[in-house]
Design a protein around this nucleic acid. Structure first.
Lengths: 210, 210
DNA sequence: AGCTCCTAACTGAACGTTCGTTTGGGGAAC
DNA sequence: GTTCCCCAAACGAACGTTCAGTTAGGAGCT
């Protein structure tokens, strides 16, 4: 399933350093707004030197994406293993997923840019290397927690919620008037867990008063 | 002069047609990937003609943003007015908000691009013209529905959920194996309403069994 | 040891193209 | 005649990319 290719290139130290700079620049400004000269300047070399390691700009971007997206499933295993109760695991998973994106803005922004770009092949890479594992895991947990609900839809909802929150945080800072601290993040994760497990109403009351 | 006038400029018919094309192109490809010549070609004119109506490319983009973001609060009023029960209004609001973004990909994509760009002034525009009204309305509803919860956080959660879902839909199509139809959208809205009002568990059970 | 040969890594300079923008002028409407 | 709208052409700068030439280092041979 994982798209760790049959052709596993050693990816020399120099190539890695190029990709490291490329991921930061592409994540920050987007593909079109980053020139080969910008990239060369960032690692104190010349444009021609980059062409010694990669055939063209597209290849650099594609390699940078793979570099960031690869091995995302590994860390997940540690989060979901163990035989805790499903709701405990789910909470841990939500916290982990939120941190995954908020602690790693390069990953988060590249994901968002790829969602906007909509390239079929690269969307598949994104889906398989970044999204699939958490999705399946949440789906599995939700199936145990709420067997009567659509587990896939629930999993989609939770991932969408986390991604949406991370993405919207600059706007939410203005709207709620609070800086986006680590504490705020934990609040969100706890809030999300409550939301998923119990909803936001204290108790379902059909007739609400004004 | 980059100051935003409070007095609305007449915005001639020709200017509107330029902005209409600009919004589509900028939404689709992003600022850097759309050239003045692309834009001119789209409305069958020349680059120089555009410079008769706007001082530079930045001004076109800024005006295009304002064109798309303006008057977003108007339609909301029809959705929330009336004295239905808060949970009914909330459901209607969630459906409306989801459709707002999924029926209008130009708006949705420009919002996402602005969130990525992070320009302070334009983020403020986005916040005030697009986000603030739904946010305050949801916050108000949530305060009535769940007085003990953090209404602002709940409102942020709901908006994040809707935006995240719309944004993630291409990936979710692959993950769930279903095309993203109108029906699927309604399912999501209903699912979200259930989630917010009652959570996803059938009933809150502190001790879950394996 | 010294010498040759090879290759990877890089440089400086340039290629042709496209970029945002400007200029000068032409034609229609008043 | 002035004003508005637009065009063809061009500006310099930046773009992605190429290319001949220069290093540095190691392998192989004597």
């Amino acid at each position: 399933m994982s798209s760790v290719d049959l052709t596993a290139p050693p990816l020399s130290e120099r190539k890695v350093s190029i990709l490291e700079a490329a991921t930061v620049l592409f994540a920050e400004h987007g593909y079109a707004a980053v020139s080969i000269r910008d990239l060369a300047r960032a690692i104190h070399t010349t444009p021609a030197a980059l062409y010694h390691h990669f055939p063209d700009k597209d290849a650099i971007y594609a390699a940078a994406l793979r570099h960031v997206f690869s091995d995302r499933a590994k860390a997940l295993e540690a989060v979901v293993k163990g035989d805790d109760a499903p709701d405990v695991t789910l909470e841990r998973l939500i916290v982990w997923l939120t941190q995954q994106f908020s602690d790693n803005p390069v990953l988060a922004r590249l994901v968002q840019r790829e969602l906007l770009a909509g390239d079929r092949d690269r969307l598949r890479l994104l889906t398989e290397d970044v999204m699939a594992a958490p999705f399946q895991e949440i789906k599995r947990l939700m199936h145990r927690l709420a067997p009567t609900k659509d587990a896939a839809l629930s999993a989609a909802t939770i991932i969408a919620l986390v991604m949406g929150y991370v993405q919207l945080s600059p706007v939410l800072e203005v709207l709620t008037g609070e800086r986006n601290t680590k504490q705020r993040l934990r609040d969100f994760a706890a809030h999300t867990k409550d939301l998923v497990l119990h909803g936001l109403l204290v108790q379902p009351q059909p007739g609400a008063h004004i």
